[in-house]
Design a protein around this nucleic acid. Structure first.
Lengths: 196, 196
DNA sequence: TCAAAGTCTTGCTATAGAGCAAAACTTTCT
DNA sequence: AGAAAGTTTTGCTCTATAGCAAGACTTTGA
């Protein structure tokens, strides 16, 4: 079942190249820190309350990061597609229990790196330090944008914005989850889609 | 006018101590990179559309970071009080025009460091690298928390949350701005305050 | 110290969007 | 292939909150 895609390591290599170029030899040294794993659709990489001990690089498929609040409502804040790193950074940084779940939305192939290994590489390998800084910066910029976009926009404007910014989300993710990403109800989203 | 508070440098030194301890001599080397400046209440440190070229360390007073959207509505996302760094990180990182304004809410004394100087120190001085990483991490964690707190919480819950998490905001910041921080109208906020 | 500007409160009205329930449609599994 | 499970759509109702306007209160500065 679930054969691991060829070219997996090339994807990771390309990711590095774009941010912190790395020699073939250096990359070979890094490889053993990552292990390929597969998660079936809907399975969980991490559950609310657990400690987040790994980062994941998406090779194929997608997963989402979401939170369930006290009223039982799901709030999704991120969809990770191919060639993106994703994890619960907060739990990893603070070593605190995760308030978020990571769940495969599509059948998911990832490269996993343990938190301890990762932070060790951050301290010892300049390229990884740079990668980490880049991840933090992007995570920050993305969530910043999200705050402004969620606040003070009507439901319809949010949908239009999503269509422009992240069309992948609309094409690959079930509506119910898209709604929980936009912070609107599935009913409203359904109605709005007919108005463009 | 506006005499600069004594102990200013101690505040910065203390900030470093907590995150990346630094020797007296090293700190002396760093000092010239920071310049004290004063902003009267309501004056702007940065306006939407400009490039963000500095970081600010608050010595006394407070400033806010906010955005004006197309419908003219103000959205505040951060209040910086004493002993916090604040800036438009996104504009600084990307070198892109700021979509945010920085404005003194109270009479404001800051230590200012130029972007170029700062990033140079990040690359050359390990302690500053660590400070930057810490700033990024905290900025990220804070905005993460904010996303969940804004989404799917009623106006009353938001107010209660603010009271718990950031009582300083309620005691030092005018209601109109608090409302723009919580993403609710000033009218609703006013009504809600009477219900506790 | 008092007028002017700014801020906060409160009554009223209007509305976007929530949420239930049932029907239509789609996917999954055996 | 067909039953069961899951998802999306749609009608209907209800509520939280926006936003105006007018009055009370507070701050500012000459």
């Amino acid at each position: 079942m679930a054969k691991f895609p060829p070219g997996t390591w090339d994807q990771l290599r390309d990711y590095f190249s774009k941010i912190a170029p790395i020699s073939v030899a250096e990359f070979e040294d890094l490889k053993p820190s990552f292990s390929p794993s597969y998660f079936p659709k809907n399975s969980f990489l991490l559950r609310q309350g657990e400690l987040c001990l790994s980062m994941y690089f998406v090779v194929k498929g997608s997963f989402r990061i979401f939170h369930i609040n006290d009223t039982g409502q799901e709030l999704t804040r991120y969809f990770a597609f191919e060639n993106k790193f994703g994890t619960n950074l907060t739990s990893m940084i603070e070593g605190s229990p995760s308030v978020e779940n990571l769940q495969a939305v599509e059948p998911l192939f990832v490269l996993e790196i343990k938190k301890a290994t990762f932070f060790q590489l951050v301290e010892t390998i300049p390229q990884v330090n740079k990668i980490y800084r880049n991840i933090l910066q992007n995570a920050y910029i993305t969530s910043q944008r999200r705050i402004y976009d969620l606040q003070g926009m009507t439901a319809l404007d949010r949908l239009k914005w999503l269509l422009e910014q992240y069309p992948l989300i609309l094409s690959r993710i079930p509506s119910r989850l898209v709604a929980s990403y936009l912070g609107i109800s599935q009913y409203t989203l359904s109605r709005l889609k007919s108005e463009l």
